Computed example of a mutant assay.
Amino acid sequence: MNALVPAPSAPVPSATALSVRDLTVRYGRAGKTLPAVDGVSFDVARGETLGLVGESGSGKSTIGKAILGLQPPNAGRILLHGTDITRASLRQRRVTAIDLRVVFQDPYSSLNPAQTIGQTLTEPLRVLRVPKDQWRPRILESLAAVGLPADAADRYPARFSGGQRQRIAIARALVCDPQVIVLDEPVSALDLSTQAQVLNLLADLRDSRQLALLFIAHDLGVVRFLAQRVVVLYRGQVMEAGGAEEVTQRPRHPYSVALTAAAPVPQ
């Protein structure tokens, strides 16, 4: 089993890649609107992982959807490298997609079983109108970056394990050479050994490419090993934010204490 390597305690880089300011998202129910996200703010710097943690219904996945343009916010701003993308058009999003990518939770449903891995990785390049002569080199480079051989491009998803499929999903995000990646519960469907491998891979990619990672999860213990900073959410609001070690080992808010108790971390 690969050992989980705690995130380094080095100072957070100063170059902000992603900023969320006073984000509010409301859902309608029986003639009423309820806040799924209520005035949330945070920054993610290049070369940094920010952990967004909370149980089901805390609003963490809604925040991810709003950042990706999948859920329109009711208020607040989302800035990518200082540019407001809160209500960007589809045409603007096409440009944004180069720098902002996503890895979803389920490594099985996120890949089309009828397409080869090469075809799957080609799709974002086609959408972004990358010249065809760059497709194959980019695909092979992305597969190599996640530890998969070149012949993986010619095989179908059924030939791969869950951990390998999640590596492919990460390769699909990397193929556009982004600077910001939203990771929505990327290891929760994997066994503990495979979780460790994927988390260590993400840490290596973050450090080597100076990626800004927004790591969305319900498990505070898992987040500690990848994130330098943590934001704890409850019912759409920030309960606590700070360094990963401080929040996981010396939580101040009762809700953070409860999350820590549910997922103990090594002392």
Results as ranks from 00 to 15, higher is better:
residue 3 A to H: 14
residue 4 L to W: 02
residue 6 P to K: 05
residue 7 A to T: 02
residue 9 S to Q: 15
residue 12 V to F: 03
residue 13 P to M: 06
residue 13 P to T: 03
residue 13 P to W: 02
residue 13 P to L: 04
residue 15 A to W: 01
residue 15 A to D: 15
residue 19 S to E: 15
residue 20 V to Y: 00
residue 20 V to S: 05
residue 25 V to C: 14
residue 26 R to P: 05
residue 29 R to S: 13
residue 36 A to N: 11
residue 36 A to W: 01
residue 39 G to N: 05
residue 40 V to P: 05
residue 43 D to F: 10
residue 44 V to L: 11
residue 44 V to A: 14
residue 44 V to T: 04
residue 46 R to P: 05
residue 46 R to C: 13
residue 48 E to N: 00
residue 52 L to F: 03
residue 52 L to M: 01
residue 54 G to H: 02
residue 54 G to Q: 02
residue 57 G to A: 10
residue 58 S to L: 03
residue 58 S to C: 09
residue 59 G to A: 07
residue 60 K to N: 02
residue 61 S to T: 15
residue 62 T to M: 11
residue 65 K to E: 12
residue 66 A to I: 00
residue 66 A to W: 06
residue 67 I to S: 10
residue 70 L to T: 06
residue 72 P to M: 03
residue 73 P to G: 01
residue 73 P to E: 02
residue 77 R to C: 01
residue 78 I to D: 10
residue 80 L to S: 06
residue 82 G to I: 04
residue 84 D to P: 09
residue 85 I to C: 02
residue 86 T to V: 01
residue 90 L to Y: 07
residue 93 R to L: 15
residue 93 R to Y: 12
residue 93 R to C: 04
residue 93 R to W: 14
residue 98 I to G: 12
residue 99 D to V: 07
residue 100 L to E: 10
residue 100 L to Y: 12
residue 101 R to A: 15
residue 101 R to F: 00
residue 101 R to M: 07
residue 103 V to H: 12
residue 104 F to S: 09
residue 105 Q to Y: 03
residue 106 D to G: 08
residue 108 Y to H: 12
residue 109 S to Q: 04
residue 109 S to P: 09
residue 110 S to Y: 09
residue 112 N to E: 01
residue 114 A to V: 14
residue 117 I to K: 06
residue 117 I to F: 03
residue 120 T to M: 13
residue 120 T to H: 07
residue 124 P to C: 07
residue 124 P to F: 03
residue 127 V to C: 12
residue 127 V to F: 13
residue 128 L to E: 05
residue 129 R to E: 15
residue 130 V to N: 01
residue 132 K to E: 14
residue 137 P to S: 09
residue 145 A to K: 12
residue 145 A to I: 01
residue 146 V to N: 09
residue 147 G to E: 10
residue 148 L to Q: 10
residue 152 A to P: 00
residue 152 A to N: 06
residue 153 A to R: 11
residue 156 Y to E: 01
residue 158 A to V: 13
residue 159 R to S: 15
residue 160 F to W: 06
residue 161 S to F: 10
residue 163 G to F: 04
residue 163 G to L: 10
residue 166 Q to E: 09
residue 168 I to Q: 09
residue 170 I to N: 12
residue 171 A to R: 06
residue 177 D to K: 15
residue 177 D to N: 14
residue 179 Q to C: 13
residue 180 V to T: 14
residue 180 V to Q: 11
residue 183 L to C: 15
residue 184 D to I: 11
residue 184 D to R: 11
residue 184 D to K: 08
residue 187 V to L: 04
residue 189 A to M: 12
residue 190 L to F: 07
residue 193 S to N: 11
residue 203 A to R: 14
residue 203 A to N: 11
residue 205 L to S: 06
residue 206 R to D: 05
residue 207 D to Q: 15
residue 213 L to W: 06
residue 217 A to Y: 01
residue 217 A to Q: 01
residue 218 H to E: 04
residue 219 D to P: 07
residue 219 D to S: 09
residue 222 V to I: 13
residue 223 V to A: 14
residue 224 R to C: 00
residue 226 L to Q: 09
residue 226 L to I: 15
residue 227 A to D: 04
residue 228 Q to H: 10
residue 230 V to L: 07
residue 231 V to I: 06
residue 234 Y to G: 06
residue 238 V to N: 10
residue 239 M to L: 11
residue 240 E to Q: 05
residue 242 G to R: 00
residue 242 G to H: 01
residue 244 A to E: 05
residue 244 A to V: 04
residue 245 E to N: 13
residue 246 E to Q: 15
residue 246 E to K: 00
residue 247 V to Y: 01
residue 252 R to E: 10
residue 255 Y to T: 05
residue 257 V to Y: 00
residue 261 A to M: 12
residue 264 P to R: 08
residue 265 V to Q: 05
